[in-house]
């Protein structure tokens, strides 16, 4: 699929960061506003898919030299680890905790262990989507 599409490529370069930033925003907003791990992850994945469409697999592999299977694995580890972490505090599996804290720059922020779990979801979704797309793309 060698298409020399300058307009798409240029637009992609600009839009890509906007989409990724937006997806990160969606991810962190998830606890209060629409968003969360699934949507954030999908949005990030979609951004990378756009990159794939505009350029080709090799270029993307150079820009993002991750093994996305490992991203999936790390995500699962996060999710299970958060769940198992509760066991250390003598609480049932997957019990979450939260607290309010004052962080520099951010001010009063409420911190959740649920975010760690959501990071797991986020990473799994990215990993899975891109594993699928990359594998199919590479297969020729």
């Amino acid at each position: 699929m060698k298409i020399n599409d300058v307009i798409l490529q240029t637009a992609t370069k600009l839009v890509l960061f906007v989409i990724i930033l937006f997806s990160i925003h969606l991810f962190f907003a998830g606890h209060y506003y629409p968003g969360g791990g699934f949507i954030g992850g999908l949005m990030t994945a979609a951004a990378i898919v756009l990159l794939l469409l505009a350029f080709d697999l090799k270029t993307v592999a150079k820009i993002l030299p991750f093994d996305f299977k490992k991203v999936t694995a790390i995500g699962l580890l996060f999710a299970v680890g958060t769940g198992a972490g509760a066991l250390l505090f003598d609480a049932p599996f997957l019990t979450h905790a939260f607290t309010d804290a004052y962080l520099p720059l951010l001010g009063k922020t409420s911190l959740h262990t649920a975010v760690l779990f959501d990071i797991g979801v986020y990473l799994v979704v990215i990993g899975v989507t891109l594993t699928i797309i990359q594998t199919i793309g590479e297969s020729e």
């Binding site: 606890h31 209060y32 506003y33 968003g35 969360g36 997957l94 939260f98 649920a114």
Partner: peptide, 19 residues
């Protein structure tokens, strides 16, 4: 769960096992 987005809270907290 100190969250405001019910759907997300259900997903990551109340029904975390499903997720």
């Amino acid at each position: 769960a100190a969250g405001k987005n019910m759907v997300n809270v259900i997903l990551v907290d109340f029904r975390g096992f499903d997720t």
